[in-house]
Each structure stands twice: as structure tokens, then as C-alpha cells.
Amino acid sequence: MRAMAVAVLALVLAAVLTLTVGVREGGFSLVWQALSAFDPNDPAHIAIQSVRMPRLIAGLIAGAALGMAGTIMQAITRNPLADPGILGINAGAAFAVVIGSLIAGRADNGLMAALAFPGAAAAAVAVFALGGGLKGDAGPVRLTLAGVALSAMLLSFVSAIILARNEALEVFRFWVTGSLAQAGMRPLGYMAIAAVFGACLAIAIAPRIEALSLGSALARGLGTKPGRIQLGALVAVTALTGAAVGVAGPVAFLGLLVPRLARRAGGHVLRRELIASAILGAAILLFADTIGRIVIPPTEIRVGTMTALIGAPMFIWMARRLRAGASA
């Protein structure tokens, strides 16, 4: 419980920092005023309401969703390297949206909402099929390499389309690395609903995922149907990842970092781990975003770059710890 309390405190702190850091004058009291007694004539208030608040909300949605998606994926694949970014699911959502808006000739929020989810689902199915997940247990090495390859291919397509359309570098950064910089333009409402749906589904099926991780024969004996649970997990991961990509682009590595920490806070009970990963995911993403904004002003480092800078060493550390027997 203490770890959970720490996580909540961290999230509150991260949220406050997201709203206050970088505000020129007034700091916390100005932010408080803008939220409690909004003055539509004060440009500072408008900036907080229209720039900072969307950024905070997008960070909350994307962070919580990616953290939970990572935890489910690691639980169901028993692969400590599983992450929606590394396994190409983020890239699938980004690819579907970018190619869809190229074909449709428009890039509105409805289109994005309609395409991000099927894209994520298709990539998830593809990576498991290619990674050997259909034949039996997908080994961490093969699944990871399949994800890296799928992700490389899809993001190459995304870069080709964006470069061919001569879009601004900012668009490229959003769709290739992930960013919270223009959160106000994203379909926050739609994606929040999808993320909440995914989160509820994940929490609902969590005990049965745990049963499944005892081995499918034993799980069947306990009255669970492995196929259905896997389908449920796929739907949850798709909803969560699609929502995150919709508001923040393909941010990678958060799903790798968060589950390890959540396991400590959740005490190895999947339901509690999921709640902890939502809190920790949002907190880490908001911290990473805030740090990215203040290290080299006036330019800001995109949040996807920040998570990769933290997450890549973690990936190396975990790869070293994989036992030889676990690599098959």
C-alpha cells in the first residue's frame, strides 16, 4: 500500500509540474487562478487552459494506457521485453492513420479514431503470428526481433509518406517518435473513452490472465478458455495502444519500464499491478515530458525521445538478464 501511495503522490507532483513548469510568471498561483477562476480576457489563463491542460490530459491518457498495455502484454506473453512500441503495435496504429489520411485526403479526428484501433490490432496479430505466438509460447527473442522488424517497416512507410507530402518536421516527429507538443489538436475525448474501455476490460479479465499464465492446460482445468482470454487481452491492448497513439504518437519503451515498477507496487496481483501501472505510466510520461521541455530551452525534446533515452538502457539491462534457456 505504501508503494501505491508513493505512486499516487508522484503522479500528483508530475501533474502539477506539467501545469506550472515553464509558465513565465505567477507559477502555481496563476495556474490555480486559471483553473478555478478562469478569466477569458487574460492571455495567460487562455494559454494554460488551451495548451497546458490538453497536454496534461493527453499525458495522462497516453501514459496510463501504455503502462497498462505493457503490463498486460508482459503477463500474457511472459516476455519481459514486451512493449507496444518495441513490438510494433504503436507503429501499426501510426501507419494506419497516416496511410488512411493519405488515401482519404483529410486528417480529422474521426478518421484517426476509426483507423488507429484496427491498425494496432492488425499489428498485434501480425507480430504474434510472425513471432511464433500462434504455434506455442512466443520466445522473448523471436517476438522482440519480429516486433523490431515490423516496427522498422511500418515506420519506414510512415516516414516515406510524411516526407513525400513535404509535411513539417513537427508532423514527422509526432508520427515517428511521439510527442505531446500539440496535444490540443488531438481527439482527446474519443481517445479517453477508448482508453477507459480498454482499462476496464483489462482489469475485468486480469484474474483469468493470471490463471492462463499458469499454463493453458491448468487454466482449462480451472474453467477458463485460453482463446477467449487471449482475444480479450488483444482487444484491451488494442484499445489502450490505439488511444495512446491517437493522443501522443508512437511513444515507445513506457510499456517496458512501467510493469517492472508496478510489480513492486502491486505485489504480484495482476489487478493491482494494472492500477499501479496506470498511475506510474502517467506519472513517468508527464515527468519525461516536463524534463524534455526544460533541459534545452527554447527547443523541447519530444517525449518519445525522452522515454527512449530512459528505456533503451533498461532494455539492454533486461536483455542481459535473459537466461540462455529463456531465449528459445
Binding site: I296, T299, T305, A308, F315
Partner: peptide, 20 residues
């Protein structure tokens, strides 16, 4: 795998440098 990780890290470092 470790090489992949170093690849991820340098890619992130690259996009960090590019923003500057």
C-alpha cells in the same frame, strides 16, 4: 539483443541532437 538496445539508444540520442 544488447546491440538492438544500443541501436534504440543511439536513435534516441540522434533525435535529441537533431532537435538542437
Amino acid at each position: 539483443l544488447v546491440g538492438l538496445g544500443i541501436g534504440f539508444l543511439t536513435a534516441a540520442a540522434n533525435s535529441f541532437v537533431v532537435t538542437r
